[in-house]
């Protein structure tokens, strides 16, 4: 079993502190949902953990199996097993999905070791079928001209191919209609298992009806203000965030 520990994490962009001391521990095999209103710092936390250069960790630590990852470049963090599923994945003109994934897998191999091309395509097609992605997509440029649903499915495809230990899924449900949401959720559920831990960031309870979390955390103004099990998500759905804010203010 692996663990990802977020300890008293403070994150700033420019002069502005966005994340103000989050502590959270995830083990492989678990799904943690982080819910909260816009601007609570959920996405910032995920990007900072993945090593986005625009975000500075000013205090605290992130430990992967007890070892800090903060000195690692973003690509090293990825190879160590951390995967960020982007809310707004970049379009990369001229780089095909197949070449992109090959480069990502090649980066995980030792010097001089070469990808087995037929094995690679076999696996890729298998995952694509699962996510209902047409096979012609392999030669399309990464995310270029993709619909919202296609982009999100492509994120899950990458996750399936790269087999991370921890996936940070940033608003994977945003911009999806109900059919696309189901496909994406089925994809995530198929990856669920003892060797993967997931941090699922979302606004809405809707996604959690398809991907049932083990834990639910509420993040407001850069802090986790309440944690519970899946019933907390339902409570938030019916009562909104205000009561949690009040409860936190009173505490």
């Amino acid at each position: 079993m692996s663990s990802l520990e977020i300890k008293n994490l403070h994150v700033s962009t420019g002069d502005k502190e966005i994340v103000k001391g989050v502590t959270l521990a995830i083990n492989t095999g678990e799904i943690h949902a982080v819910m909260g209103p816009n601007g609570a710092g959920k996405s910032t936390m995920a990007k900072a953990i993945a090593g986005h250069p625009d975000y500075t960790i000013t205090q605290g630590d992130v430990l992967l199996d007890g070892k800090s990852i903060l000195e690692m470049e973003s690509d090293e963090r990825a190879r160590a097993g951390i995967f960020l599923a982007f809310q707004y994945p970049s379009e990369i003109p001229g780089v095909s999905i197949a070449n992109f994934l090959r480069a990502a897998i090649q980066a995980r191999m030792s010097e001089g070791e070469e990808i087995d091309a037929s094995g690679f395509y076999k696996r890729l097609y298998q995952k694509m079928d699962l996510l209902k992605i047409e096979r012609t997509f392999t030669s399309r440029a990464v995310n270029e001209g993709f619909s919202g649903g296609e982009k999100k499915r492509t994120e899950i495809l990458q996750m399936a191919m790269l087999e991370p230990r921890f996936a940070l899924m940033d608003e994977t449900d945003s911009g999806l209609d109900i059919d696309a949401l189901r496909v994406v959720a089925d994809g995530v559920n198929s990856l669920r298992g003892p060797s993967l831990g997931i941090l699922l960031i979302t606004h809405y309870q809707r996604l959690l009806g398809y991907i049932v979390p083990d834990f639910v955390h509420v993040m407001i103004d850069g802090c986790i203000v309440k944690s519970g099990d899946k019933t907390l998500a339902l409570e938030l759905e019916s009562r909104g965030y205000d009561w949690v804010k009040k409860e936190f203010a009173n505490a």
């Binding site: 986005h52 982007f86 780089v95 070449n99 990502a104």
Partner: peptide, 22 residues
């Protein structure tokens, strides 16, 4: 774009090479 590629484990140099090819 560069961060996106690096976030998949692709080192800086290989990421730039992919973007140049792109």
């Amino acid at each position: 774009q560069e961060f996106y590629l690096k976030s998949r484990g692709i080192p800086q140099k290989a990421a730039d090479e992919l973007l140049i090819f792109g």
